[in-house]
Simulated scan of single mutants.
Amino acid sequence: MKLPRLDLSMQKKSCRPVMLGRMWQASRRALRLDHSPPHQFACCQWQNGHKPSTGYLIYRWLVFLTVICIGVASFACQRLPRRYEGPPVKINYFKWFIYFTNWGFMLIAIQSGLALAVVHRYRKKAYNFSYEEDDVLTPRRSATPLLCRMYWLSHNVATDLAFVITLIYWTLVYDPKLHDINALNLLVHGGNSLLMVCELFVTAHPLRAAHALYGSAVGLAYGVFSAIYWALGGTDRFNLPAIYPSLNWDKPGPAFGFVAVCAMVLMFVHGCATCLVALRLRLAARLRPTRVQSEHLTLPTH
């Protein structure tokens, strides 16, 4: 009796859609802003217990107030550089909003405000944090609150933009004749990255590699905004047609190239941020093994 031959070519064809479907589903899960347990968005990596500590609440208030004060000072203290030798220019304060640096700083302010709101939410309401012990035996994924999703998204984007802004400003944009080196300039072009590094080591929530796409999307959105602003006749604070010399849409080829490079750098710096979070978890595993072990018993991040 002869056994029927299997058509291997048909099997391969049928497997390909299944594999592509699984890859698509895995990509969608990685991009989602879902994480369990959600209380990690309200806690510090180095605290005890699952309820936000008083020390972390004070830290969140200090960060929020400091960022707001620096942002207000950056907007209100606009002036021409001391070494500026061009024609007289009347300062337009609302042009503060056209610069990528200030986009990034506004996102830092937004994420610090949302982080503070998340901490107050988990401290104000009587949440039952003991459910995780039962979840070890009967896992149940709790829904991630919208407030936590918004905070996580803004934190991801603000971190990527801060690193890129510091890198690009001091390598490509800074001009001694157009920019003064003072405390405010150092805070918005260097203190932003230092703050986000501190945030990566203090917070308890994870950082996913796939979320690099969100930061790159914001970078591309700024490139589109700068092109529209240029097409409508907008100028920078010195009345020049380009917001940044490297983003001059009078020369579309180099401008497109600059936007593409920035998008790739955003993905690279997100990878660096992910490595910093991995380092934080490794340090926590050595210094606080009991707490980290209990967190590992909870559901996976995606």
Rank of each mutant, 00 (worst) to 15 (best):
Ala204Gln: 13
His205Arg: 01
Pro206Asn: 06
Pro206Thr: 06
Leu207Tyr: 07
Arg208Ile: 05
Ala209Ile: 14
Ala209Val: 14
Ala210Gln: 10
Ala210Pro: 07
Ala210Arg: 08
His211Glu: 04
His211Trp: 12
Leu213Asn: 07
Leu213Pro: 01
Gly215Thr: 03
Gly215Gln: 03
Gly215Ile: 02
Gly215Asn: 06
Gly215Ala: 05
Ala217Asp: 00
Ala217Glu: 02
Val218Thr: 05
Gly219Lys: 00
Gly219Pro: 00
Leu220Ala: 13
Tyr222Gln: 07
Tyr222Val: 04
Tyr222Ile: 00
Gly223Met: 03
Val224Met: 05
Val224Glu: 05
Phe225Ala: 05
Phe225Ser: 03
Phe225Asn: 05
Phe225Glu: 04
Ser226Glu: 04
Ala227Ser: 09
Ala231Gln: 14
Leu232Val: 11
Leu232Met: 14
Leu232Thr: 11
Leu232Phe: 15
Leu232Gln: 12
Leu232Pro: 00
Gly234Gln: 06
Gly234Asn: 06
Thr235Val: 15
Asp236Trp: 11
Asp236Thr: 10
Arg237Met: 15
Arg237Lys: 15
Arg237Phe: 15
Asn239Tyr: 10
Leu240Thr: 12
Leu240Arg: 15
Pro241Tyr: 03
Pro241Arg: 08
Ile243Gln: 09
Ile243Cys: 08
Ile243Ala: 06
Tyr244Thr: 05
Tyr244Ser: 04
Tyr244Lys: 06
Pro245Phe: 05
Leu247Phe: 07
Leu247Gly: 01
Asn248Tyr: 12
Asn248Arg: 04
Asn248Ser: 07
Asn248Met: 06
Trp249Leu: 08
Trp249Ile: 08
Asp250Ala: 15
Lys251Glu: 15
Lys251Ile: 10
Pro252Tyr: 07
Gly253Tyr: 11
Ala255Arg: 03
Ala255His: 02
Ala255Met: 10
Val259Pro: 09
Val259Phe: 04
Ala260Pro: 02
Ala260Gln: 05
Ala260Tyr: 04
Ala260Ser: 10
Ala263Cys: 15
Met264Lys: 03
Val265Phe: 08
Met267Tyr: 05
Met267Lys: 07
Met267Cys: 14
Met267Pro: 02
Phe268Pro: 00
His270Gly: 00
Gly271Glu: 01
Cys272Leu: 15
Ala273His: 00
Ala273Val: 03
Thr274Glu: 00
Cys275Ala: 14
Val277Trp: 08
Ala278Tyr: 12
Ala278Gln: 13
